[in-house]
Write a protein that binds this DNA or RNA. Structure first.
Length: 418
DNA sequence: TCTGGGGTCCTAGGACCC
DNA sequence: TCTGGGGTCCTAGGACCC
């Protein structure tokens, strides 16, 4: 049996932990640059605030309904996440951390235990240890565990834990569960299936394999099996990342090459930093630039380029150099650029990095980068930069409503007046 | 005026190679 | 008159997830 454990309204719940005055109040959390709504408390959902809506369009409603608005505080969410996951891992050694707020757990050899009871114990332990509310779904496959988790959330009488462990139980649930809320069926697949009159999970599992394969690829076929109760997916081990991407939208359209160039250099140095964190090198980089896709009235230009590096590297200096070369090859004047990104690809562990005959990553950089990493870790991100970066820190993310990093900075720890 | 970022996997077409 | 088959790489985009 698998369990899918999911933190309820995770970011909003985190914001509430050190602000008990916000219990029962509507909360929303915004994306980078305070752009979109990416998390909502139940109270905010009840006000009709949808996931992903642009924040500026809701300023009026936020004021009128006294919605508490927060910028994303990833230092807090990341730390709370690892606390939750560490508590969960005491229940079984087989755990896959699926995202910042979700884990799959596998329970082998628990035949004589009540999984419902175990689920309730997990809820209690996480609540006691962190204050975060969770929901738990148990089922014989991962896709069904996801589904069971949704049921646990939807039906208050379940107490936040739901188990699908019999054929009858499975048949009963999938006969009524609609496909719009199923893991792996997004808006496009939903539209096509709906057009064919498919409404329930049961109906989806009865489609011919060939049809599913043709229109939803092998991925859809796996999903069909999983939903029919055939175990197709197992826990996945934590693997080193295949790609590392650093991309940002700008606060305004950039028409000046030098400004775009500075951003690309900064993104490349962050990529390099993350490569060093997982002790690996990249062999290929991709650089892209976009105009503002939300403004079709303005001239559009989207371009991406993939470049193989002459040697594997994780030096910020070298990566920045190659990224600028790439940018030069795709940059066109006469456009207002709104977004750019650098991706590190074909990542290999340091131990396996291929040495080249004629040219290799400058060995002095390894030492220099190690010192930079150490200083930045002690003094704060991006305190030591390349001269080609924005030294005046003109570029700044809009984060007007950032909460304190309660759990990771001594200077921001909560104070209690007694 | 204002619209996130970071991932994965899959597919299609064009260029090019032998 | 008549023009193959198999492969890779790159770009681009589609779909999904959180």
């Amino acid at each position: 049996m698998f369990a899918l454990v999911d933190c309820n309204n995770f970011y909003a719940s985190c914001e509430r932990l050190f602000r008990p005055d916000l219990v029962g109040k509507p909360i929303v959390v915004l994306s980078n640059n305070d752009g979109c709504v990416i998390a909502r408390s139940n109270e905010a959902k009840a006000l009709g605030i949808k996931m992903g809506v642009p924040a500026f369009a809701f300023d009026g409603l936020f004021k009128q309904q006294k919605v508490h608005v927060f910028s994303s505080n990833y230092a807090l969410y990341g730390d709370m996440s690892s606390r939750v996951m560490s508590i969960l891992s005491a229940f079984t050694p087989d755990i896959e951390v699926y995202s910042i707020d979700e884990s799959f757990l596998r329970f082998d050899g628990f035949d004589y235990f009540s999984l419902h009871e175990i689920g309730m114990k997990m809820r209690k332990a996480v609540s006691q240890g962190t204050g975060i509310p969770i929901s738990v779904g148990f089922a014989p496959t991962k896709a069904l565990a996801k589904l069971a988790n949704k049921i646990a959330k939807k039906r208050p009488e379940t107490g936040g834990v739901y188990v699908i462990d019999s054929v009858e139980g499975l048949e009963k649930e999938i006969a009524t569960f609609t496909i719009d809320d199923v893991w792996g069926i997004g808006p496009q697949h939903f539209k096509r299936l709906k057009g064919m009159g498919i409404k329930t999970v049961l109906e989806f599992t009865q489609l011919p394999d060939q049809w599913v394969k043709k229109h939803m690829s092998i991925v859809g076929l796996r999903l069909k099996r999983e939903l029919a109760g055939i175990r197709t997916l197992d826990l996945e081990e934590a693997k080193p990342k295949k790609n590392i991407a650093v991309t940002r939208s700008f606060n305004e359209n950039y028409t000046d090459f030098e400004k775009v160039k500075e951003r690309v250099i900064t993104f490349a140095t962050i990529c390099a930093e993350r490569l060093r964190q997982q002790d690996s090198y990249c062999n290929v980089i991709q650089v892209f630039i976009h105009t503002n896709n939300f403004r079709p009235d303005q001239p559009q230009y989207n371009r991406m380029i993939t470049v193989e590096l002459p040697f594997p590297t994780n030096s910020g200096i070298e990566l920045a150099h190659f990224a600028v070369d790439a940018l030069n090859r795709i940059y066109k004047t006469g456009f207002g650029y709104k977004k750019a990104g650098v991706l590190a690809m074909e990542i290999t562990p340091a131990a396996q990095a291929q040495r080249m005959i004629f040219e290799n990553s400058d060995p002095r950089h390894a030492q220099l980068m190690a010192v930079m990493d150490k200083l930045n870790k002690a003094l704060g991100q991006q305190k030591v930069k390349l001269a080609s970066q924005d030294l005046d820190r003109v570029w700044k993310m809009k984060q007007e409503r950032l909460s304190p990093r309660y759990t990771t900075r001594w200077s921001e720890i909560i104070t209690i007046k007694c």
